[in-house]
């Protein structure tokens, strides 16, 4: 594949405005631009659609209400009534991931969540929040989370390190899952796009049909990964609040 036509070229970070604050590079990049677009889109979507405050919701308003109730139910089912306090956090995480994924599906746009550092940042935010919630709620008892109950002492020597490792791997698996899904989906679309060009007008129809189907799948994945990210955050939060295995 020729240079500049790599399927990974779409993930290139371009510095739009060079900035440097106290020795740290804080340049405004295309990634930053799309983050701003995403939060603007979310805020506009939720506020404009609810502007009418209609008793009988229209199409946009019922979409906004649906997303609200979707996360509210998820939190209620997985965490219980104590989770109500963390609703804005989980809701923001879900909407951010969902809109990053969906806006990334627009051709020539940039998928913020296809960068491991962004997804890792999000996952680390979730991880730190959840751990702090656990520590503030239970204090030292939070450490009992790493000790499985009803297990012989001999096995504990083996199980406690495994529990600790599995706990600290959570942000990594959470971030890599989202990143890998976005990376793979967009790369696959680009690879098949290259096939369409390579086979030109007499043979390109087959990969073109494939791309059409894949695009549908990618929309499903975009939604599903946001759902998975949110529901795993809920499960982690539940662990921190209830501490039981």
């Amino acid at each position: 594949m020729a240079e500049g036509h790599s399927p990974l070229a779409q993930f290139e970070i371009k510095r739009l405005v060079e900035m440097n604050v106290g020795g740290v590079d804080v340049s405004f990049t295309n990634s930053s631009l799309f983050m701003i677009i995403v939060i603007a889109a979310i805020t506009l979507f939720l506020t404009l659609s609810m502007r009418g405050r209609a008793m009988v919701p229209g199409r946009m308003q019922s979409m906004a209400e649906l997303s609200y109730e979707f996360i509210a139910n998820m939190l209620k089912e997985n965490v219980g009534s104590e989770g109500r306090k963390y609703f804005p956090f989980i809701f923001s995480v879900f909407m951010f991931v969902l809109f990053c994924n969906l806006i990334g599906m627009i051709p020539y746009s940039f998928t913020v969540t296809s960068h491991i550092i962004v997804t890792f940042g999000l996952a680390a935010t979730v991880f730190v929040t959840v751990t702090l919630v656990g520590i503030f709620r239970h204090g030292f008892k939070f450490l009992s989370f790493f000790v499985p109950s009803d297990v012989p002492a001999v096995l504990l020597v083996l199980l406690v390190p495994i529990e600790i490792i599995s706990y600290f791997v959570r942000p990594i698996s959470l971030s890599v899952r989202l990143f890998a899904n976005m990376l793979a989906g967009h790369t696959l679309l680009k690879v098949f796009g290259a096939f369409v060009i390579a086979l030109s007008w007499w043979g390109g129809w087959v990969p073109l049909a494939f791309i059409t189907a894949l695009t549908g799948l990618e929309f499903l994945v975009a939604f599903l990964q946001a759902y998975v990210f949110a529901i795993l955050s809920c499960l982690y939060l539940n662990d921190a609040i209830h501490l039981h295995h």
């Binding site: 890599v176 899952r177 890998a180 990376l183 529901i231």
Partner: peptide, 24 residues
């Protein structure tokens, strides 16, 4: 089912990421 699908599919994508890391 969807959750399990996404979690399992992620395993495939971990492998893909490994492949990408090796290649690029």
């Amino acid at each position: 089912v969807l959750l399990a699908f996404a979690l399992t599919e992620a395993v495939a994508l971990f492998a893909l990421v490994i492949a990408f890391l090796i290649l690029f």
